[in-house]
Design a protein around this nucleic acid. Structure first.
Length: 440
RNA sequence: GUGGGUGUAGCUCAGUUGGUUAGAGCGCCAGGUUGUGGUCCUGGAGGUCGAGGGUUCGAGACCCUCCACUCACCCCA
């Protein structure tokens, strides 16, 4: 058999993994800056626990099998349902409960660009409060995460299930399958354009008359600054009680986002629907301006009913989830990510067999000073050792030859400039420190 | 999951109507240069032509099946 990774699964080589880890470090520190602690849950859950949470489509994508004890198990499909289970399993959690979780999830989808069968999600969730402040916190965290990752050009599209409910009610669309079909069509509006949308609408939803169609298009194209969009939605949907509540909630949310962050990346977009069936309130997704075809890189919403399905008491909750693997592959495609193939800052050359003790002593001193150091693993030709530093992109090389050893110094070479100086260890560390890795 | 496209060296790709020993550029390794990488010169290694089967005197090329990648649909992080 040829050695080959499973379809939709992938290896990460050093360059990509260093980049991914740097992203994850940044994400973690933003999450913790909001006071969220980490948790972990198992990769496998009882299948029954995950069934019925993701809609029919999602359910087919579960990796599900019998374990060696004949238990019906499934690999987690997201981190939200396991969170709901965790809350139900542990009674003593302090509410409001905050947590973040960064972990892989598995979906048996057909792989495509930016779409994998195994990918890491970074979830933050706030459980126990149903308030615009909690909703706003998710958007603020999302904005801060993207800023920490130097992602500037993106659009955070925000909607509310209440707006969708008001819309379908006003248009006379029945709950259930018909509503689902309508929301799917609506979600495609931007992609297929208004003309095709009108055609599909007339074909699949004959009960919507001409006036209704115009009204619908007015609703979904009321885009602009959030405050303006909400004002026009008020006119169009305010007569519906769910619509009015949703609009007021989004208004409060936007006030808080405006105060704590920025509104210019946010668009109120009544056409986004979100597939996962557990959402009940605000929903959002994030598109990169340069690569919208990658789909959403960060999404989530409010799911007030999900935790209650396990906990026996209703616990409102809201969360947001970043897909690092998708974001990383998009950023790599844009080329906005400088990649390294080593964490090393300096390569210590082994000058000779006899001098290897000097090299090991120097490497230990560098590491003691906090400098990431590789030592060339044999006393090969100097040319080869310098070449290796060059190929790996290690910024400095250090050599202790016989004459340097006798003087207690070393030759420190800055590879990019070719500049080489004879200095002691402390001065070498200072120079390396000053140069930095250049990518932080 | 459905439909289309593409699979030739580590990478990007040539390879004529089926015809001898499958090529290039880049990269890699070695030497030119026994205390120093990047430029230059010389040499070298590296291919079950995605896999299996079929047609043929002869297949990288044609046919079938499978696998992978990719685009669209679908869905989503």
């Amino acid at each position: 058999m040829r050695p080959q990774a499973l379809r939709g699964f992938r290896d990460y080589l050093p360059e990509e993994m260093l980049a991914k880890d740097r992203m994850l470090d940044a994400v973690r520190s933003v999450f913790e800056s909001y006071g969220y602690p980490p948790v972990a849950t198992p990769a496998l859950e009882y299948a029954e626990l995950l069934l019925g949470k993701y809609g029919e489509e999602g359910e087919m994508l579960l990796y599900r099998f019998l374990d060696n004890g004949e238990r019906d198990v499934a690999m987690r499909y997201d981190l939200t349902v396991p969170l709901a289970r965790l809350i139900a399993s542990h009674g003593s959690l302090i509410m409001p409960f905050r947590r973040y979780q960064i972990a892989p999830v598995w979906r048996a989808e057909k792989p495509a660009k930016g779409r994998f069968r195994e990918f890491v999600q970074c979830d933050v969730d706030l459980v126990g409060v149903n308030d615009a402040s909690a909703d706003a916190e998710m958007l603020l965290i999302g904005q801060d995460v993207l800023r920490a990752l130097d992602v500037e050009k993106y659009r955070l599209r925000v909607n509310h299930r209440g707006i969708l409910r008001a819309m379908t009610r006003i248009l006379g669309i029945a709950d259930g399958a018909e509503e689902g079909a309508f929301l799917r069509l609506l979600d495609k509006l931007e992609k297929i354009g208004e003309e095709k949308f009108r055609g599909a609408l007339a074909k699949d939803f004959p009960q919507i008359d001409a006036a209704g169609t115009e009204r619908l298009l007015a609703i979904v194209s009321s885009g602009g600054a959030p405050a303006e969009t909400l004002a026009s939605l008020e006119v169009l949907l305010g007569s519906d009680p769910d619509g009015a509540l949703a609009i007021e909630r989004l208004r409060q949310t936007m006030e808080r986002v405006s105060a704590g962050g920025r509104l210019d990346t946010i668009v109120i977009d009544p056409s986004i629907a979100r597939g996962l069936s557990y959402y009940t309130g605000i929903i959002y997704e994030t598109f990169l301006e340069a690569l919208p075809e990658y789909g959403s890189v960060m999404s989530g919403g409010r799911y007030d009913g999900l935790v209650g399905m396990f906990a026996g008491r209703d616990l409102p909750a809201v969360g947001i989830s970043l897909g690092v693997d998708r974001l990383l592959s998009a950023l790599l495609e844009i080329g906005s990510f400088e990649s390294l193939s080593t964490p090393a800052e300096v390569l210590v050359v082994q000058f000779s067999e006899q001098g290897s003790a000097d090299a090991f002593r120097l490497a230990a001193q560098f590491r003691e000073a906090g400098v990431a150091t590789v030592i060339y693993p044999e006393a090969a030709k100097l040319k080869k050792q310098f070449q290796n530093a060059h190929n790996l992109g290690i910024p400095f090389t250090a050599v202790v030859g016989e004459s340097e050893a006798s003087r207690g110094t070393l030759q420190l070479k800055h590879m990019a400039s070719g500049e080489q100086v004879e200095v002691d260890v402390a001065a070498a560390v200072a120079r390396i420190r000053r140069a930095g890795r250049g990518t932080e």
